[in-house]
Design a protein around this nucleic acid. Structure first.
Length: 258
DNA sequence: AGAACACGGTGTGTCCAAGG
DNA sequence: CCTTGGACACACCGTGTTCT
């Protein structure tokens, strides 16, 4: 295929995937299936699965799940809806199932997450965040660059997913973009995520849309010492899955709680 | 080469119950 | 009212193969 034709094909695929992402963001509260999304994209579900994964980096199901849980975070912080009501609004049929997925993705249960806003957090919920999460004996270092100005510290964490979700296996905070070293990284294949607040970012943990800059690399195989990575913080683009982990606001909450 | 299909394993959501 | 855990069903995913 000539280069120009290849570029045209790629841009066509991107616009189809963007359409699917838009559909997810608009209709996350409905029981969307891969078939529905494939219909919207005018292609088979088999092909959609392939092109979506190639462009976005995660499967359609995982992306949709991230969109739903991100909206749940916003509702928990900006409304008085019960957890069950939030669960229903974002498309989950079972509050129990919602609470479990939320806890896995965010690192805190829905009620614990809601309390973050008030700077109140049970001691049990600190485990895995407050100690840097480190459980291994390897290390990983590198450099974080930034597209534009950032406010406050830069967080760097090791996660098991290309989506910034759950509790990091190890994390650190550095005062500004620059070099970092992560210790206690378990051996394995990980995704390294970096994130920081933009100067105009709201303080509300639920309002992360457009308020932060992120970057990720991976999978990075760590075995002992010596891995070097480089990340460049940028505002989230349309194909970036929402940030689900409570990590960027956890340290702030710890400080507020004393 | 790209698109569609088949299939087995895996992951996710639901339901239910128990306990805080 | 919320969280957690187990069992179950089924949709989803990854991979290999076939078709155009």
């Amino acid at each position: 295929m000539p280069q120009q034709a290849a570029r045209s094909w790629e841009s066509g695929v991107e616009s189809v995937v963007q359409c699917v992402v838009d559909t997810m963001r608009e209709r996350y509260s409905e029981p969307l299936t891969l078939d529905d999304l494939a219909d919207a994209a005018l292609m088979s579900k088999f092909h959609l699965l392939r092109v979506f994964s190639r462009v976005v980096g995660v499967t359609p199901g995982r992306f949709l799940s991230a969109v739903r849980l991100h909206e749940a975070k916003r509702l928990l912080n900006s409304t008085d809806l019960t957890v069950a009501e939030v669960s229903e609004r974002v498309g989950y049929g079972s509050p129990g199932s919602f609470a479990r997925r939320f806890t896995e993705a965010v690192g805190l249960s829905p009620t614990q997450y809601r309390r973050l806003d008030a700077g109140v957090l049970p001691a049990a919920a600190r485990h895995g965040f407050a100690d840097g999460g480190a459980t291994g004996c390897g290390s990983l270092s590198g450099r974080v660059l930034a597209d534009s100005e950032v406010e406050g510290v830069v967080y760097v964490g090791v996660f098991d997913s290309p989506i910034l979700q759950g509790r990091p296996r190890a994390w650190t905070a550095v005062p500004r973009p620059g070099t970092f070293t992560l210790t206690g990284v378990p051996s394995g294949s990980w995704y390294v995520h970096a994130l920081a607040r933009r100067p105009d970012a709201p303080r509300n943990p639920g309002e992360t849309d457009g308020a932060i800059m992120t970057d990720a690399v991976g999978p990075v195989v760590t075995e002992g010492m010596g891995r070097e990575v480089e990340l460049t913080l940028r505002p989230p683009c349309w194909s970036c899955p929402p940030v689900l982990s409570a990590l960027p606001f956890f340290e702030q909450s710890l400080l507020a709680a004393g």
